[in-house]
């Protein structure tokens, strides 16, 4: 589903190279964890997948279902089924959450040539999805993410993911700032989306999240490259021994 080939990318503003020859394959139906120390390029990779214009891809390619997405803008990528759950979801004053959900769902449908959802059907879906995430509908009347607690913001991200039904979900440090109860709710939300035709990429710093979202594959990112791949036991090894051992091995 996702194939990253020899990707090199740098920050547009100052030219710093962050991704340095990254190779990664994630198959449909798979949950892949990407782990790595601070500054290894994890968040940058998620932004590049979503199409943030602050980064320049200088070499290599990103194939999604066999086709390059590098020329697509973020909205086109989203309509094609790529979803990034942000580590720090933006607060957007003046845009009501419900209105935003309506626009996002219907713009994606429009881009795919589908009929827009009518308000009653939309409300039904939003209500059902919020209930599973233990979210209060009152929150959805407020401006998007404004004044939401850290946990509420993360739940709102998962809510959007459930409603938009993407094919490739990229979750950037979804566990950061969550207490254990919120973590379980969020993990349940993610697990409910596991499907044979969907891939989930979980970017995380700690093994903790992977107790709740059990990965099929674990990749270690260091200095902009995948230096080691393995199954879920690799995450446990990292938890026990830290990154130093793996990094030493690769060097």
């Amino acid at each position: 589903m996702l194939e990253i080939k020899n990707l090199h990318a740098r920050i547009v503003e100052d030219g710093t190279e962050i991704i340095r020859g990254l190779n990664l394959t994630v198959n449909a139906g798979e949950v892949a964890a990407i782990m790595g120390p601070n500054g290894s390029g994890k968040s940058t990779l998620s932004y590049i997948l979503a199409g943030k214009e602050d980064y320049d891809v200088t070499e290599g390619d990103i194939l999604y279902n066999g086709e390059s997405i590098l020329e697509m803008d973020p909205a086109e990528r989203a309509a094609a089924g790529i979803f990034l759950a942000f580590q720090y979801p933006m607060e957007i004053p003046g845009v009501a959450t419900m209105e935003f959900l309506k626009v996002a769902m219907n713009e994606q449908r429009k881009a795919r040539g589908e009929e827009p959802l009518k308000v009653p059907e939309l409300l039904k879906r939003v209500k059902a999805a919020s209930a599973t995430l233990q979210m209060d509908m009152g929150m959805l009347k407020r401006p998007l993410n404004v004044g939401f607690s850290g946990g509420e913001k993360k739940r709102a991200e998962i809510l959007q993911m459930k409603l938009l039904e993407p094919k490739l979900c990229v979750m950037d440090e979804t566990d950061s700032g969550l207490d254990i109860d919120a973590l379980k709710v969020v993990a349940d939300g993610v697990n409910s989306l596991r499907a044979p035709d969907r891939a989930i990429v979980v970017i995380t710093h700690y093994q903790r999240l992977l107790e709740y979202i059990v990965p099929d594959a674990v990749h270690v990112l260091y200095k902009g490259q995948v230096i080691k791949s393995g199954d879920k036991s690799l995450a446990l090894e990292l938890e026990a021994n830290g990154y130093a051992g793996v990094i030493g091995e690769a060097a």
Binding site: D73, E99, E107
Partner: peptide, 27 residues
């Protein structure tokens, strides 16, 4: 730009996303 990227990353076209943000500013 952060707001614009966030909205676009949810599939809202650039023009609609700008429209939403302009409207938010004036509404």
């Amino acid at each position: 730009h952060g707001h614009l990227f966030y909205l676009m990353a949810r599939g809202v076209s650039e023009k609609s996303a700008r429209g939403l943000l302009v409207k938010a500013f004036l509404a």
